[in-house]
């Protein structure tokens, strides 16, 4: 209890405010993008993008730049390469992901090895460290959120069509490949926003868990987007609080928190299903 008040008290410090802001902002991005990732079933592709972008982090260290400067073009580039390779060549998407995933990490490792001295906040990019987020990163996250919201509002019906039935989208005369690559670029942007919060290794969980939870509550993709953003924000904030209270790594704690809630909710839903199966009369008319 005392620890909890400690946490409340800590919110007056600038670094904590930044941490909270960063968590909430990234959860908006992954709430929106996560829904498309989950419904289009491109979770592993998202993992590919996030890991491949590690090459960008390594390159920035090597060149002595801010890692985010290398990260942004690298993740966008890997998104475009993945989209292009899977749509335009005969290489299967699966294979392309596998290659790019490890190629990016390998490049990052080589670059960091070549960099003289020790890379102090390397772990930040691997596992996230929300307490070190500077204000400049907050502005970047706001910008990324705005871009994502703007593009999704603009292309909402196209993205839904793309995720549901890509072939029909093309038959309808829409540039389905271009739309797909735009969606991948938005994923890449959300990766950039998330990397300081949970780190590149844990990004997939942050994109998929809130969206999967919200999917259990609604069949309306709009509501799903709003709901998964809200769920993400609540769980992200709780994870951050827990990590502060128990003095644990923040990124990992956020993911543990999300995963735990997901398991509980899945369990509850399957219990409910079992109950309804045994008592068929109690099934009400509402969907599911």
């Amino acid at each position: 209890m005392i620890a909890f008040f400690d946490f409340i008290e800590s919110l007056q410090y600038g670094f904590m405010q930044n941490a909270v802001a960063a968590t909430l902002l990234t959860c908006i991005a992954c709430g929106i993008i996560g829904v498309f990732v989950v419904t289009k079933k491109i979770v592993s592709l998202t993992g590919g993008i996030s890991h491949a972008s590690f090459g960008g982090v390594g390159l920035s260290y090597f060149l002595g730049l801010d890692p985010l400067l290398g990260l942004l073009p690298f993740s966008i580039l890997s998104a475009i390469v993945l989209g292009f390779v899977s749509k335009k060549t005969k290489v299967s998407e699966d294979t392309a992901i596998g290659i790019l995933w490890s190629l990016g990490v390998a490049a990052g490792v080589i670059f960091i090895y070549l960099t003289p001295g020790y890379a102090p906040d390397l772990m930040t990019y691997l596992f996230g460290n929300i307490l070190t987020v500077p204000s400049s990163d907050i502005y970047l996250m706001v910008a990324i959120d705005l871009i994502i919201i703007f593009v999704v509002l603009l292309l909402f019906k196209e993205f839904v069509a793309l995720c549901f039935d890509e072939e029909y989208t093309e038959v309808s005369g829409l540039p389905s490949n271009a739309l797909y690559i735009i969606l991948l670029c938005l994923i890449a942007l959300s990766v950039v926003a998330m990397i300081k919060v949970v780190g590149m290794i844990l990004i997939i969980a942050m994109l998929t868990i809130p969206a999967s939870i919200s999917r259990k509550f609604t069949y309306d993709i709009r509501k799903m987007i709003v709901l998964s953003s809200i769920i993400g924000m609540i769980l992200g904030f709780s994870g951050l609080a827990l990590s502060y209270i128990f003095d644990m790594p923040s990124g990992a704690m956020i993911i543990i928190c999300m995963g735990f809630v997901y398991l509980i909710i899945s369990g509850l839903f399957s219990l409910k299903e079992k109950y309804l199966r045994k008592n068929p009369k109690k099934i009400n008319k509402e969907p599911n």
């Binding site: 419904t39 019906k157 039935d165 989208t169 069949y219």
Partner: peptide, 24 residues
């Protein structure tokens, strides 16, 4: 199809209008 997809029947049918409605 993935019939678990969060879309209702009306939205599916509206997809038929994609070719006439146009982008954006």
């Amino acid at each position: 199809f993935d019939f678990d997809f969060p879309i209702n029947v009306l939205q599916v049918v509206l997809m038929g209008r994609l070719s006439s409605t146009g982008l954006f």
